Simulated assay, not measured.
Amino acid sequence: MSLKIMPKNVLPDWVATLNDRFRLVGPKKAAEKYLFAEINSAEDLYLDSPPSVLPPKKYVMPPRENLLHYRLDGSRSEATIDAIPTVIFGLHTCDIHALLLLDYMFAKGFTDQHYQAHRENTYLVSIECLKPCTKHAFCRDMGTASADDGYDLHFLDLDDVYIIDVNSRKGETLLQDCRNIFDALPPDIERLNQALRQKWQKFQYRLDFDIVEMSDLLGHTYESDLWPELGARCLACGMCTNVCPTCYCFDVSDEADLQLQNGNRSRRWDSCQVNSFSEVAGGHDFRASQATRLRHRFMRKGKYQLDACGMVGCVGCGRCATSCLVHITPIEVFNSLYQRNQASTREGTRS
C-alpha cells in the first residue's frame, strides 16, 4: 500500500506504545537459542535472529487449545475461544509463507473458527532476511526467501533506518500513533533496491534441481530404497514435525470432571512420525514402519500440498534439520532422491 521510513531510534517508543494496546511477541534469546515469546520493550527483540526453535504458528494454532465446554447430559455445548490481540514481530519471510499455507488449509471446507479467531486478532510484522540465517536454510530454492503478501508490515534494515512496506489496513492501524515516520522518497527506494541486489548475491541454491520438478521427482521415487535407509536411522521422536511451521495435524481428546457432569474438548499438536499416529480401530496401522511414515512426511511437504493448493509444504527454514537427533535433513533427502533418480534413468536408457 505504501512505503515508510522509520529511524531506528523511533522503534523503542513505538514498541512501548503498542505494548499498551496489544500482547507483543517476538524473537528473544534464551540459552543460545531464540524463542518467540512475549516482549516488554524493544530491548527484548532480536530482529536479526536465526529461526526460532518453535515457529510463530504457535500463536494462531496453540500447542494445546480448549475447543469446547459442554454438559454431559447434552443440555449445553459452548465453543471456548480465547483470542488475544497479538502483534508478532520479526517473522522471517519463510514463516509468512507458512502462515499463508495454514490460512488456506484452515479456511478450506469447514472453516476452523478457533484458528480464524486467532488469525483475525493477530498482526504480522515481518523482516527481510538479508543473508542466510542458518546452514540448513534453503528458502531460495523453495521460493520463500522473500514475500510480497501475507504480512501487515514488512521491515527491511537499511543500517540507520528501517524501510517499511505497509501492506494492509491492520498495518496502518499499528502505525497510526507512531510519530517521526516518513514517506519513502526516491533515494530511499534506491537504497532498498541496492540492499535487495546485494541480498541475492548471498543466497545460493542448495538443491540440485528446480522446485518445479519436485512433485514429479517425489512421485517417481515413491518406491526408492532411500526411504528404508532413512527409516532405519529415524527415532520416530516427532521433533521434525513439532518445529515445522507448516505442520497442522492435531489430536482431539475429551475430559470429564469427577462428577461426570461437565466436559472439555481440547486439541494438541500431533505428529505423523510417532508410532501411534496412523493406528486405527482393530490395531491396524496403515503406516506401520518408520520408513513409510518418513516417506509420507516428505511426500506431504514436497508433493501432496503442492499438488493440492499450489503452495509448497516446506518453506526451507531448516528447523527440522537443526532439531533432528540423527541429522536427517531435507537438503540431503531431496538431493539424494534426485541423484538416485538420475542414476536410475541413465541405467534405464543404457539398457
Rank of each mutant, 00 (worst) to 15 (best):
I5D: 00
M6D: 01
V15M: 06
N19A: 10
R21G: 08
F22W: 07
G26M: 01
K33S: 15
L35Y: 06
F36P: 00
N40W: 11
N40E: 10
S41G: 09
L45S: 02
Y46S: 13
K58C: 01
M61N: 10
P62T: 08
P62D: 00
R64Q: 14
G74A: 13
S77V: 09
F89A: 03
C94D: 11
L100T: 08
M105F: 15
K108M: 03
F110D: 12
Q113R: 14
E120K: 11
Y123R: 08
S126E: 14
I127A: 06
T134C: 14
M142L: 12
L153P: 15
D157Y: 00
V161E: 05
D165I: 02
V166W: 11
K170D: 05
K170T: 04
K170R: 03
G171C: 07
L185S: 08
L185E: 15
L185A: 08
E190N: 13
A195K: 07
A195D: 02
L196V: 12
K199Q: 14
W200N: 06
Q204E: 13
R206M: 10
F209M: 13
V212G: 13
M214Y: 13
W227K: 05
W227H: 03
T241G: 04
D254G: 05
L260D: 13
N262D: 11
C272S: 03
V274W: 02
V274L: 05
N275G: 10
G283I: 02
G283K: 08
D285G: 04
A291K: 03
K301G: 05
K303A: 06
G318F: 00
A321Y: 03
I331A: 10
V333M: 14
N341C: 10
Q342T: 12
T345H: 09
R346M: 15
